[in-house]
């Protein structure tokens, strides 16, 4: 009598469960709150010196920003495919997708390195003006998150090579949630720094 009613309940519970680990989500929430504050600081600074911000923004190349947006979105999508595969216990497919996500994601580092190098060789540094302070600091901290993310993906693919069921799935979902956070923070950083607010 109990079996038919408990089975759907279990399945239902699983379907409703938070993807990944709630502690990781706490970390993500705290991190996103910090970035929200960064956005506020930037907006206040921009309102106080719009001309400097506009002139500085003109020196950025938004095409590179767009490229990085597409790189991160593609990498994020591959991570979703990895999670979907892991939920069906297709571990090697999950691993392939994680490796692909990391490899595509590395394109972000290439673009960023190219971009930073171009700026620095034109004498634009952290101390050029307030706009560039925030540009380097916020994209730099975001890049630091990205690097940690790539390391997490590297560990994740190793775990997927010798999967331990539920435990590995939760790890993968947590890693994916973190990776999506890196992606979505860029979705604000890109328009905020490169596009909206005007250029002079």
């Amino acid at each position: 009598m109990y079996a038919p009613s408990t089975m759907p309940a279990e399945t239902r519970k699983k379907a409703l469960a938070l993807p990944g680990d709630e502690g990781v989500f706490f970390f993500i929430t705290a991190d996103m709150a910090m970035f929200a504050l960064f956005f506020l600081v930037f907006m206040v600074g921009q309102a106080q010196a719009p001309d400097i911000y506009r002139a500085s923004r003109a020196a950025l190349d938004p095409t590179l920003g767009l490229l990085n947006t597409l790189i991160l979105a593609t990498s994020g999508w591959l991570m979703v495919r990895a999670v979907d595969a892991a939920r069906r216990e297709r571990w090697s497919a999950a691993r392939r997708n994680v490796i692909a996500a990391a490899l595509v994601g590395l394109g972000f580092a290439v673009t960023k390195a190219f971009e930073y190098h171009a700026k620095i060789s034109h004498g634009i540094t952290l101390n050029t003006n307030e706009f560039f302070t925030y540009y380097y600091a916020f994209t730099g901290l975001h890049f630091f998150h990205f690097v940690i993310g790539v390391l997490v993906l590297a560990i994740t693919q190793a775990k997927l090579a010798a999967p331990e069921g539920e435990k590995t799935r939760i790890w993968l979902e947590s890693a994916a949630a973190y990776w999506h956070m890196v992606d979505l923070l860029w979705m604000v950083l890109f328009p905020m720094l490169y596009l909206a607010g005007g250029t002079a």
């Binding site: 929200a36 956005f39 506020l40 930037f42 907006m43 206040v44 921009q46 309102a47 719009p50 604000v188 905020m192 909206a196 607010g197 005007g198």
Partner: peptide
């Protein structure tokens, strides 16, 4: 909140 911050930032500009 972020939407409000971003929109507010844009309205504050000339």
């Amino acid at each position: 909140v972020v939407g409000a911050v971003l929109a507010g930032g844009m309205f504050a500009l000339p």
